[in-house]
Design a protein around this nucleic acid. Structure first.
Lengths: 219, 219
DNA sequence: ACCGCCTCTGGTCAGCTGTCCAGACTTCTC
DNA sequence: GAGAAGTCTGGACAGCTGACCAGAGGCGGT
């Protein structure tokens, strides 16, 4: 780094403060956008609707975001940060396999119950990435970090159980993601047992992804 | 039914013929709509785009379908018919557990490979049902019939293996659906191994959903 | 040959969407 | 407090969307 003259140092300080305020506002607007997006879904959410629900004018969104894609991309990243942080303590705080299993099942179940709109938005946006290349990179990155998160939990569980995980990281994620998504559909359809089914499904599946060390599976 | 006079019989015959032609045209238009929908996704497909790609005028779609929802609902039903019929022979033609396992894994893998656009549309529309009640009933019906289809295959597998399925019907479907969807994301991201991973994932998961009759699982 | 119904066309309309922008307002610096 | 930079507003615009409709064309029945 080059040593700064007083002027450039002051300018940088100002600039940083402005950048912080700018970033803060972006986050605030993105949070408002997330709220509306999770309510109506990608296809039915316009910038004007977001603005109206957030109390801002629709113009301000174009001041802080290049375009709609830029805004939603930022929202996806925000989602990831909130989501991964929430689960990461499961693996680190546990002291036994059974505790990991219970915590994991409960965490998925309560998240599906409490954050239903946000999760359905995630699946919506992930699907959009199958059609629109704009979101593809960011969605893939979030999906990957979710996959790693699940993998951390499952390998922690396997370590406590003294066993090995038989599936690939990707397949393990896919299995729990499928259970989660089905629970979301169930919740939305008014099936009161959906959350309990998810918890029970996770509890039942988790041990079956392991095999004792040194034994070969039938293949 | 009331006995028909000659006139009403003729009228009915005509009417039936017209109904057939009408239904035929509906199916034809729905097929064209499916093609465009699977290319662009729900959010980015307009009736005019569908019409242009199909060679019809945009007006004709309003003649055969009440509105856009009516059209897409019909498309969903068409999808189901095509999809379920394709898989149903797996369970009925098999003679051993291993054969069911191989056929099932191969069927999922090749379907993901060959019908990628149609499947991503299905997931798109299923997600729309989480936001828009218009599709909810029909989507739920298709999802249920897919669930039953998977269940038939898995129970057939269990029967050949002389074992029981430990998960609920819904959880079994969720697991394979998750694997399938992850493969779709992989394919779209250009991951060449995605199809093979799906096949291998299905092969590995399937036996682990069973337990020997008479033995209790750890719970 | 004529008539009535079915089919289909393409124009029109109101409403919404993303984007841009001129200008008002606020905040900060000197 | 003057000026500049940053922030925000709301109107304007072009393009698109779903829906509607008047009328042309075709087909079958008599």
């Amino acid at each position: 780094m080059v040593a700064s003259t007083p002027e450039t140092a002051a300018a940088r300080r100002i600039e940083l403060r402005q950048v912080d305020k700018f970033a803060l506002r972006r986050t605030e607007l993105a949070a408002a956008a997330l709220a509306t997006l999770s309510e109506f879904g990608y296809a039915r959410t316009s910038l004007r609707e977001i603005a109206q629900k957030s109390g801002f004018s629709h113009g301000v969104f174009h001041y802080y975001f290049r375009d709609k894609v830029d805004l939603i991309t930022y929202c996806v990243r925000e989602y990831k940060a909130a989501c991964v942080a929430h689960y990461d303590e499961i693996a680190s705080n546990a002291t036994s396999a059974e505790q990991v299993r219970s915590s994991f099942a409960e965490a998925l179940a309560s998240s599906a119950r409490d954050d239903t709109p946000m999760h359905r938005l995630w699946y919506d946006l992930r699907n959009q990435s199958l059609f629109d290349t704009d979101f593809q990179a960011d969605v893939a990155e979030v999906d990957d970090s979710l996959e790693r998160m699940i993998w951390r939990i499952v390998t922690a569980y396997a370590a406590f159980a003294g066993a090995e995980v038989v599936l690939t990281r990707s397949a393990v994620y896919a299995v729990f993601d499928g259970l989660f998504q089905q629970a979301l559909l169930g919740i939305h359809a008014g099936n009161d047992a959906a959350v309990d089914s998810l918890r029970e499904g996770v509890r039942q599946v988790l041990p079956r992804l392991l095999q004792n060390v040194g034994r070969e599976s039938t293949d």
